[in-house]
Nucleic acid binder design. Sequence first.
DNA 1: TATCTTTGTGTAGTTAACTACCTAATTATG
DNA 2: CATAATTAGGTAGTTAACTACACAAAGATA
Lengths: 312, 312
Amino acid sequence: MERDFIKDLGYLGFTMRLKRLSDALIHSGRKLYKDLDLEIEPNMFSVFKLLEDRGSTSITEIAEAIGMAHPSVIAITNKMIAKDLIYADKDSEDSRKKVLNLTQKGRDKSTEYNAIWEIGNSAMHKELNDLNALEFLEQLEQVFEKKDFRQYLLKEMSQDMEIVQDNDLYHADFYALNIEWLKKYFYVEDYDETVLSNPKKYIVDEGGYLFYAKLNGKVVGTVALIQRDNGVYELSKMAVTDKFQGLRIGYKLMMACIDFTKKHKFNGLFLDSNTALEPAINLYRKVGFVEIPVPKDTPYERCNIRMELPLD
Amino acid sequence: MERDFIKDLGYLGFTMRLKRLSDALIHSGRKLYKDLDLEIEPNMFSVFKLLEDRGSTSITEIAEAIGMAHPSVIAITNKMIAKDLIYADKDSEDSRKKVLNLTQKGRDKSTEYNAIWEIGNSAMHKELNDLNALEFLEQLEQVFEKKDFRQYLLKEMSQDMEIVQDNDLYHADFYALNIEWLKKYFYVEDYDETVLSNPKKYIVDEGGYLFYAKLNGKVVGTVALIQRDNGVYELSKMAVTDKFQGLRIGYKLMMACIDFTKKHKFNGLFLDSNTALEPAINLYRKVGFVEIPVPKDTPYERCNIRMELPLD
DNA sequence: TATCTTTGTGTAGTTAACTACCTAATTATG
DNA sequence: CATAATTAGGTAGTTAACTACACAAAGATA
């Protein structure tokens, strides 16, 4: 038997090994059930135990209790209904709801199954108790689930996020991110389409600047400084992909613009926004913007608040 | 958030929780790759690392090294070939073999991917090192893989295995198990079909006895004592399902027959077998049977050895 | 009270592992 | 040296989870 390569990968192989182990366990469980001609599959176990314990339970309640997506529960319970182990009733109060219960056959089988499960339980106990396996698993779950490991990784990665000012590259990303943002919060006005399709003409050539947030080489946010009056700039076209929340991409873009404004000694910096976008407004306030009166002549319908950055 | 039902199940829920955790990790990994537009999927990771490390490797070598079934590896590597991350060459010495290697693009991507993986590695390290997670996983793997948990469970269950003598029930199992056994080791002779189809006429009514091994209510082995001369019995029709190896089912059936023979003070007990069935012959010797000459008139072609149990 | 939002269930499509079986090439054996 | 057994790669079918979306009922809100 060859050396196990995955083990040599250390923590990088951890996930794979966990999957391999759990797959193997589920597999051997299924094989055992099949060999013993028990008409049950490993994934039915939780549902069985839950209904034994609680009686009438709906599909989403089951999904919630056993920590699965509800379509998975539907698949499992449909099989169990087909095998006459459980039956479904309409809920008397909520006609959308199905409540599931063990049938008589299900309760009878329960005795048989519990005998096997009890043997499994005591075997696991005997082998795993010295390892404090349950306690360990609990801690693992906390590390990965509660802390949201994906988010955690992203935050680590975001330390390498860079804000770049570039007027020539990434125009396609500029368009895509802004349209995505507009579609999500408002709708695309004609003037948006015009400007976003041709940032060179409408922003750069008018003395403006384009900024991008880049994560791992990928553009994940944009903002533009657009010259309005001589030396007075509007901070606009702020758009951040919604795939990466919590990385403070917006904040970093703002700060880059403010630094740029100060460094180039612009005469003023303001922005137009909408009071419905509370998190954004809060961010603007946080970095120093203060509310000023809205003029009548803004080109966008969606703006109902104007803020400006007091410059020393 | 409701109390987690699976956790209340203790060791019974261990497998489910392990699966849930590993599924969640793989899922969030895939999502992260997708969000970052990396054209890689979680299961490609091991293959990537292996080829980076070793260069030219064949499909079965990969499967062996990362602990997966070879069709899974084929699926993964086909996707990687389609993405031009690896390429396949015929082995120069063995024309059945394909050797896989990273392409130039694959090597280039490797840099990019390793940056992410390194962040993952250090994040995992930071979170898991205090838990001694790798060490723990190693121990878990040993408990479940090396010890073959299914086998372990079966052995626990086999303590409840019972050998029953019954001439009326289970004739269908008697037929099925013996035919299964014959098809596996020899072929079904006409006389087998005759006897097995009607054990009442050919065994019971001739003064014989049928024995069954029952595990968890299911018949998993048979044997018969068939009266030949007056009070002299042949031990025959020994058949054990090949689903449950290592439970000493054959041994227990043998011992039940021997006890029965002694209790009823039979005049003799012998059996016919074939020297090719070494494990069986060894078992017969172990419980006390000794070889005697083979007569010319046995009804079965497959027998080339006769053994008898010396009775006090 | 009319409309919007949330909730409960269901379907379709994706991903990923497995076993069982197949063919062809290589190696072992009588 | 012919034939049998093993090995390498591949296909088909099974199981099981997920997300995304659809639709209807119930609840919230203007």
